[in-house]
Amino acid sequence: MLLLGDDALLLLRDAALIAGKDLRVELRSRVTINQVAPFAVLVLVLFAFALEPDRGLLTRAAAGLFWLAVTFSALLAIQRSFAIESADGARDGLRLSGLDPAGIFLGKAAAVAVELLALEGLLGVGVVVLYDADLQGATLLLATCLAATAGLAAAGTVYGVLAAGVRVRETLLPLLLLPIVAPVVLAATRASEAALGQAATDGWPWVRLLGVFAVIYVAVGALAFGPLLEDA
């Protein structure tokens, strides 16, 4: 902590405040637990209908289906993250709070990331139980989840605030976000395949690519969030 300057500490404090607020709202409203989590599991079940209940096929595709379910759920979590700011003039409150916009961005992204990690835990159980997946490389899998989730949450929060001001954001956000997070889905799937023993490749280069993606969008978000929030 001594290495960080006062500014960085303030930024982290602001981020923690916002993340705490968002997570408290989610815990009390239970929208993520009551709606997004069942939706994610339902997607896993629907994939089984699409791909024949042939266990071999589902097991081989488990990594990709897992990350598709996470990506679709992420869309809902991000919509939700900005829906709570649009009611009761919450965005004006946020703007007038004097918190650092970069801190607000980090906080909102962190709250989305925590929700997604919880969902990934649930979906992981689902994939093991429903698809008969074999979790071999636990370290690789954990690193993949952390890096991919950071990227999804950061990019999602950038596009969430981009689309926040417009009327048709529910349909616009997927069109904007899905091509952006396409490399995350691709890289996370390949790394998870390696971790599940479905591919004889090294998963770590993919994890590094996920890390680069996350760093890019954390930087974009930290720079762009101020003007975007100010003008909304």
Partner: peptide, 17 residues
């Protein structure tokens, strides 16, 4: 911002595919 942030992801896309 959307235009520029679509471009910064191109190198990552390139490596991934």
């Amino acid at each position: 911002i959307a235009g520029l942030s679509a471009v910064v992801v191109i190198p990552v896309n390139h490596f991934a595919v």
